[in-house]
Amino acid sequence: MTSTTPTNLPLVLLVDDSVDVHRLLQARLRHEQFQLIGATSGAEALQLAETMPVACILLDLDMPVMDGFEVLRALKDKSSTHSVPVIVLSGLNSSDDKVTAFDLGATDYVTKPFDLSELRARLRASLRLNHLLTLLAERADVDGLTGLGNRAHFNKRWSEQFAEASRYGHALSLAMLDVDHFKKINDTYGHPAGDEVLQRVASVLQSSCRQFDVPCRFGGEEFALIMPNTGPADAAKVAERIRQEMADLQFPRHPEQRMTISIGLAGTDGGVGAMNAEEWLESADKGLYQAKRTGRNKVTVNNLTPSQTLRLAKAG
């Protein structure tokens, strides 16, 4: 029942097993500033909500096989659908059901038969809420100075990528990057010069990494680059490209003073052994400090592929 017309209007997903309700609301809501798509079962609803950028869900409670409460629970359990506002529709005006719905995470509750103007107003309110939540989520994940993902974004993406690599035995690499002698720039040329350096590092990171890589500002003058499906050898090439580009850059504010970065990299060709996400991060960090200690402006690579980790452990 999904409409195929692509528009920029927000998507509202109607979940109801009754075709009458779909027809009715399609007619009643066709002049609103959103596009209505439909599902006639809980399973179909969950599948649509996960694959489409749904802005609000109208959810009927009384459905066979999987009822509205179950659908609501499943929606709130998944990170991809967790924050989508859900308006529960019910023929029952019972306090118990309302309380259960709100406790499970519903945003609003409307009883059938609908008062159309009320339903429209409630839909608009939920869409406003979704818009603000989306804005907030974006802001909360973005570093204001560089436009890269911030530490929170890094933490989220890193644990996702780590979990996936350990579950499926995929290759994965992580690089930690730190600007050499950054404090001197701030002290000598002032904070605007320092800010500019950070912004240039960010744009080098963005232009030198691949589309599926995840560059983040880790904090201060430290950056992180997650490279999914990439073993340490290929990741080292990316890191080296970044190091070189950075070293070649000239800065209008201080043309005589080039900026370099040191990079510590830890990656696996497949499997992570017994290592957890934090230990992996520490391994990349150790590499970074080793690069700093041994002269800066260089890349240090730690290969974490399990057989090699074992060999290293025995040798050490």
């Binding site: 009754s18 009458d20 309700v21």
Partner: peptide, 9 residues
């Protein structure tokens, strides 16, 4: 149940 809802609408 379905008829009830539909008739209302």
């Amino acid at each position: 149940h379905q008829l009830k809802g539909a008739c209302g609408g």
